[in-house]
């Protein structure tokens, strides 16, 4: 583009050459763009393809022919084991309940709080924000012990709704900060125009800000959901009933401390990521929607 900018001020006789240059540039640019995307895809996908191939190979082939991705013989037995001898489908359902419930609760509470923080000026605002952040900064590994006692006391130990509520609280500080960040990028003029029309604040959020916020909301939702989907430590301490386990703990339980069948690890982790990829492919279109631009133009 730099060359284009320079050429603009030059004499008309150069325009022919300029066009050629432009086309050449567009082509190189597209080439670079695609080769970068493909390179990135390769780096991230190759290990997964390798993992997929490992899950159906005869065991010894994983070790003896590390580069061969096409198995000499395809074996589906680990997948059978996942879904028949282990209640893997149930683990998945549980994970969906916990992660979905948890991320929706976090988002609902955080949208309100983030609106308050973004749209009001008040004394102690920074302090409030820092205190909220503080909650997220403390590594919670050891706090599992008091948490265990507390959940027992609240009657939420070893229950599914307890997990949903707890998961709902886990990412709230994070979500407040993120959503406040997204709110801040929306000009206040947008709110004002709604107020002038007589809209209440809830209506302003719901009808005017939310559409603009959707990309940020979706990004936050995806990130929180994945975080909760992979949460392991709390679930393994707070759930006793094997029917309540999420897939993260289920996978570990399935592998146990003395399981050495790598195919099972591979298969379990692949099955684990499929729901998330589905959700992402449904939601990702909102990440690129032109809504933001459109709304501001109004």
């Amino acid at each position: 583009m730099a060359t284009l900018a320079n050429h603009v001020h030059q004499r008309p006789s150069h325009i022919q050459r300029l066009r050629k240059n432009l086309r050449f540039e567009v082509i190189t640019r597209v080439l670079i763009r695609y080769s970068l995307a493909l390179l990135a895809t390769f780096i991230f996908v190759y290990p997964l393809i390798w993992l997929a191939s490992a899950s159906v190979k005869p065991n010894w082939e994983i070790y003896r022919q590390p580069l061969q991705l096409i198995p000499s013989e395809v074996q589906w037995d680990v997948y059978e084991r996942l879904f028949q001898t282990a209640p893997f489908a149930r683990y998945m359902t549980n994970s969906v309940i916990y992660a979905l419930g948890g991320s929706l609760i976090s988002l609902a509470f955080s949208i309100l709080a983030a609106y308050g923080l973004s749209r009001y000026r008040f004394r102690g605002k920074r302090l409030t924000m820092v205190l909220i952040l503080t909650v997220q900064l403390i590594p919670g590994l050891v706090s599992m012990i008091p948490l265990y006692l507390m959940m027992r006391w609240l009657g939420l130990f070893n229950t599914q709704h307890g997990m949903v509520l707890l998961y709902g609280s886990l990412r709230i500080p994070w979500a407040i900060w993120v959503l406040k960040g997204y709110f801040d990028t929306i000009p206040i003029e947008l709110d004002e125009s709604a107020w002038i029309d007589g809209a209440s604040k809830f209506r302003t959020i719901w009808q005017i800000l939310m559409p603009v916020l959707v990309p940020g909301l979706v990004a936050a939702f995806i990130i929180i959901f994945i975080g909760l989907w992979n949460e392991f430590a709390l679930a393994s301490v707070l759930l006793r009933n094997p029917d309540y386990l999420p897939v993260s703990v289920g996978t570990y339980v399935l592998l146990g401390p003395d399981e050495s069948d790598f195919r099972l690890t591979a298969a379990a982790s692949l099955v684990n990521i499929i729901p998330i990829l589905l959700i992402f492919s449904v939601l990702q279109r909102y990440l690129v929607s032109g809504l933001a631009a459109g709304a501001v133009k109004q």
């Binding site: 309940i97 979905l100 419930g101 929706l104 709704h161 949903v164 939601l283």
Partner: peptide, 23 residues
């Protein structure tokens, strides 16, 4: 706008579903 409505209704259904399942 319709995209947004769909997103919100998706979220609502999901909330109901997860709450009813968990309670």
């Amino acid at each position: 706008m319709s995209k947004y409505v769909r997103f919100v209704s998706f979220m609502l259904v999901a909330v109901m579903l997860s709450l009813s399942l968990s309670v």
